[in-house]
């Protein structure tokens, strides 16, 4: 367990008795043969986390919490997977999509920039054309930006 330094949730994976209820209800396990939440928890318990980090299996979780909801032992497999995502990000770097989003938070406050979108008639719209108020960064964006960059590990 020493390998998983900081859990997102408050649960203890060591109490898992491998009943596979998590896997049986997982929509991703239904679609992807190599994604088995109970097996991921087993690898963690056996301190074989390195093997899990060799491929992209930890990025297959859709974070729907069904496994956590139905676990009879309150193991929270989804939280275990998220802790593994953190671990692999620290080893191999944060996925580019997250880096981009965190940088956007640091500059605008939000995770995305305002987009122009098409309606069914292919007419393009934005906030202004729809009469919605202009987006503005929070007034203390300087302070927020500094903290977001430090905690998010982006420049």
């Amino acid at each position: 367990m020493s390998r998983i330094e900081e859990f997102v949730g408050l649960q203890d994976p060591l109490v898992c008795f491998q009943c596979r209820r998590c896997t049986s209800g997982c929509p991703v396990a239904f679609l992807e043969k190599d994604y088995r939440p109970h097996r991921i928890v087993a690898y963690v318990i056996m301190d074989r986390v390195d093997q899990l980090l060799e491929n992209d299996v930890v990025w297959k979780c859709t974070r729907c919490y069904k496994c956590t909801e139905y676990c009879p032992q309150a193991v929270a497999p989804s939280d275990v997977v998220m802790a593994l995502q953190k671990l692999v990000s620290e080893k191999k770097g944060l996925p580019e999509a997250y880096v981009k989003m965190i940088k956007t938070v640091a500059s605008t406050g939000l995770s995305f920039e305002e987009m122009d979108i098409a309606d069914r008639e292919f007419e393009i719209h934005n906030r202004e054309s729809l009469g919605l108020a202009k987006l503005q960064p929070p007034s203390r964006i300087g302070v927020i930006s500094k903290i977001v960059k430090a905690l998010g590990g982006v420049e």
């Binding site: 007034s139 903290i147 905690l151």
Partner: peptide, 24 residues
């Protein structure tokens, strides 16, 4: 007023960033 992202997408990879933005 002055709201920003709640940090939820980062709860796995950057839990402290999430908790800061959400508590904010």
């Amino acid at each position: 007023r002055n709201s920003a992202c709640c940090g939820y997408p980062y709860r796995g990879v950057k839990p402290k960033l999430w908790l800061y933005l959400s508590a904010r």
